[in-house]
Write a protein that binds this DNA or RNA. Structure first.
Lengths: 107, 107
DNA sequence: CGTATAGTCAACCAATAAGTTCACTATTAT
DNA sequence: ATAATAGTGAACTTATTGGTTGACTATACG
């Protein structure tokens, strides 16, 4: 299906995560997506390309405008991968909690 | 805290995700972590370094052996970031479900 | 028509990443 | 003391990434 390498790589850049965050609030034209950033439109366009290649967003052309919107599946799969370790880190955090608990028992 | 860029970047490599998966089954010496891979020990050592720099694992030296074990926090934070979009993609998947439902209504 | 708008494409640059090999250090075993 | 084991460090290669600029295409507007 979608490639976890690509998904995680796409998310490993602050700008791209910000784009995803923006698009979570609704579809937007590229120009609007690019507005908050200092870099050139070309640079943002490339970021959008990376996200779209990873399947995290889709881009549809209407007139001369490209509208970007977020897509569900790859993030879903990333979470699925990470969740395989959820029991593990719950346990580790519980252990930390217990430790802190013990430490404070002589108050 | 931990750096999401680094966390996602560390997870964007198949070898490194395999290492994490291996370590989820318990602490292991580097040599054992490296065993399944065709690449050199040095290469695996570098991957381990990347994971450890990202805080995803920790490495402790006992004798001449380095034991690697998984650490909870950064993956936790990655999941937290992704989960901000969970409502979003649930909705998208629900919409897909509804669509497929509708499609089959004339059976 | 001509011009502004939205964006891509190609070429380039500097930095980083993933791998290699070879030499080296540190620890354990004989 | 010597030799095997576990791993690091440095130097190098090749590919990819994130950014730039400048020229170009496609659509909309007057």
């Amino acid at each position: 299906m979608t490639d976890l390498n690509q998904t995680f790589a796409a998310l490993s850049d602050t700008t791209r995560r910000a784009i995803v965050a923006r698009l979570a609030e609704g579809e937007a034209p590229l120009a609007e997506v690019a507005a908050p950033f200092q870099m050139s439109l070309t640079a943002v366009s490339k970021h959008v390309r990376v996200l779209s290649d990873a399947g995290l967003i889709s881009v549809t052309k209407r007139g001369r405008t490209r509208y970007c919107r977020i897509e569900a599946t790859p993030m879903r799969e990333a979470v699925d991968w990470l969740n395989d370790y959820q029991r593990f880190w719950d346990q580790q955090l519980d252990a930390l909690g217990a430790f802190l608990q013990d430490e404070n028992e002589d108050d």
